[in-house]
């Protein structure tokens, strides 16, 4: 293990540049540790985001050596190439400064795709009883662990080509709710995810599931949405 890591970090907004820093190499060091070292010891002006440091909050995603990753759970040993690390902001989102991007588009699209649970019961009603083996529940469970990190969104080429595309995370979220027996939005949600900006724009190239740190498969969720949307369209229910 070399003692010093040469780290290139993006500085500025869209028209910025990479700045090089020397960071002492430590054992079990994560990419987030590296960025934090730079901010604490070398340049307090460096902007970046993190919160939980344990892979739960979804705020620390960056582009590491060209690949979108959650930095708090990415060990330097896994990604450094010849003691070199290049850290840039996430792709497909406007850069605010350094490593921080404007996530509004990403979160707005979650809402646009009907990502909010619509309850059919009041708090006085009894709990819904859904067997864990229920096929629909299994579909919902498969995508429920999303932490909203936007790694998939940064990995998706369709988002790059068509900035209005809802993207993998929003569609994955919609699919969990389509399969949630307690949710009351029904076909309305399918109309929200249909159309040129919705699930039918996905090319099924699986960049999203290749990069999702939670190993989810938005591609499979989107395929499910496509089937449901096709059936709804044939029945005239969109």
């Amino acid at each position: 293990m070399s003692e010093i890591l040469v780290v290139e970090i993006w500085r500025g907004a869209e028209d910025g540049h990479f700045q090089s820093f020397d960071v002492p190499r430590l054992e079990n060091q994560t990419v987030l540790d590296v960025v934090t070292y730079v901010q604490r010891k070398l340049d307090p002006g460096l902007s970046y985001r993190f919160s939980c440091r344990v892979g739960m909050c979804g705020s620390c995603a960056m582009t590491v050596n060209g690949t979108p990753r959650w930095t708090c759970r990415t060990h330097v040993s896994r990604v450094a190439e010849d003691g070199q690390l290049q850290i840039a902001p996430l792709r497909n989102l406007p850069v605010i400064k350094d490593l921080t991007v404007d996530m509004r588009n990403f979160f707005d699209k979650l809402a646009k795709a009907g990502g909010a649970f619509q309850s059919t019961k009041a708090r006085t009603d009894n709990f819904a009883q859904i067997p864990p083996a229920d096929p629909r529940r299994k579909q919902a469970d498969a995508g429920i662990e999303c932490i909203g990190c936007a790694v998939c969104y940064a990995a998706c080429d369709v988002v790059t080509w068509k900035p209005t595309y809802l993207g993998p995370a929003a569609l994955n979220r919609a699919w969990t709710l389509v399969n949630d027996a307690r949710d009351g939005m029904g076909d309305k949600r399918l109309s929200l995810v249909a159309g040129d900006d919705g699930c039918i724009a996905c090319h099924s190239q699986q960049g999203c599931q290749e990069h999702c740190p939670k190993n989810l498969s938005p591609t499979a969720a989107i395929a499910g949405l496509k089937r449901s949307v096709a059936v709804a369209a044939l029945k005239g229910k969109l």
């Binding site: 109309s191 249909a194 159309g195 040129d196 919705g198 039918i200 949307v229 369209a233 969109l238």
Partner: peptide, 15 residues
């Protein structure tokens, strides 16, 4: 073009 029309086009392409 409405989303419904867009979706019908997509469906027509699949069929």
């Amino acid at each position: 073009m409405s989303e419904v029309t867009q979706t019908r086009l997509w469906l027509a392409q699949r069929i």
